[in-house]
Every structure is written in C-alpha cells, then in structure tokens.
C-alpha cells in the first residue's frame, strides 16, 4: 500500500499510466501523483494545456495523453518530483525514461548509472543518454536514461554517484 510504504501499487499506477497504444507513438508524460494535496504548478507548466485539474487545487492532475508531447517541462516544475517522461519509440528494444534528479554528483552523458525501481531496488546499469541541467533558479536536473523497453514502467530513479564509463 502506497500509504503505508511509499511505493505505489500496480493498481495505483494503472490509473495514471499512458495507454500502451499511446506509448507506441512517442514520448509522453506520466504523473505519479495519487493524493489530493493543494498543488498545481504542473498545470501552468504545460504549454500544450494537456494537464488539467478542474477548479480545485487539491485535485490530482489529469494528463490528456493525446495533447501531451512529452516535452518534459512539467517534469522539472512538479514540486513532488512525481512526473516522468517515457519514450518507448527511442530504440528497437530500448525506451528512454526521463526522471527528475536532485543529487550530486550528476552523471555525464554516456556514463552508466544504477537504475532503481520505485522501492529503490537495483534494476541494472543503464546508459545516461543526456543530462539536462536545471536552471540556476529551478535546480531540478533531468536524467535521460536508456532502459530495456520492458523496464520503461519500472525504472524511476538512479543511484547517485558510482557512475561507470561502460
């Protein structure tokens, strides 16, 4: 149970996961935001107006996956670091997972980092394709990680430090 462990369940995730059909079309955002809290910066962040939450700031965000282009602006704006970008069209067998990251040291593009799941368990070494540094004001970095396609819904963090060159 998310409320007792901090780990979202399969059921929690089903409610916010972009459908498989949509994921075949290109990058798309996934907001792992399951609790009604007063927070709405993601709505203003989206240039496509794909994120809505009605009139109540306490609602959970809803992403219109047809409008979402997977640009990743919301990922860096979400105060909860709960938005991820999934691109299952990245490679033949690989997907690109973009995740928010606020630890040092940062990996460099081309290095390999230990990928972690939502419980912080190791999933393997994956290639960091790009590191988009947060602005001096925003400070949240985006790690673009190439993972096996079947792990696109599993990898949600990397271990800070200990990066490998191959």
């Amino acid at each position: 149970m998310l409320i007792s462990t901090g780990i979202p369940t399969e059921e929690d995730l089903q409610g916010v996961m972009p459908p498989a059909q949509r994921r075949k079309l290109g990058p798309v955002a996934m907001a792992e935001c399951f609790q009604k809290i007063p927070c709405n910066p993601c709505v203003a962040a989206c240039r496509q107006k794909a994120i809505t939450m009605g009139n109540d700031i306490n609602e959970c965000p809803k992403i219109d996956f047809d409008l979402c282009t997977g640009c990743g602006v919301c990922l860096t704006k979400c105060p909860g670091l709960a938005i991820f970008i999934i691109d299952e069209t990245y490679g033949a067998d690989t997907a690109l997972v973009k995740l928010p990251f606020e630890y040092l040291p940062l990996p460099q593009a081309g290095q390999y980092a230990m990928g972690l799941n939502r419980a912080g368990e190791e999933l393997g070494w994956f290639k960091v394709v790009q590191v988009i540094k947060g602005s001096a004001r925003n400070l949240t970095h985006t790690i673009c990680l190439e993972v096996p396609k079947e792990l696109s819904m599993e990898v949600r963090n990397i271990r800070e430090g200990g990066y490998r060159d191959e």
């Binding site: 998310l2 409320i3 007792s4 462990t5 901090g6 780990i7 979202p8 792992e32 935001c33 399951f34 609790q35 809290i37 105060p79 909860g80 670091l81 709960a82 972690l116 799941n117 939502r118 419980a119 912080g120 368990e121 949600r156 963090n157 271990r159």
Partner: peptide
C-alpha cells in the same frame, strides 16, 4: 501510525532512493 503522515510524493521520492519507511 499505520499510515504515512506526510505527502505521498515526498514518501515515494525517498522510497525510490532506497530509504525504507516502516509504518507501525
């Protein structure tokens, strides 16, 4: 308590960094 008291996005963030949260 049997439930996490704070915002679950904060809980998820530390849990995926490998920090266990033991309720109860």
């Amino acid at each position: 308590a049997p439930r996490i008291g704070g915002y679950l996005v904060h809980a998820a963030k530390i849990r995926r960094a490998g920090i266990p949260i033991l309720t109860g």
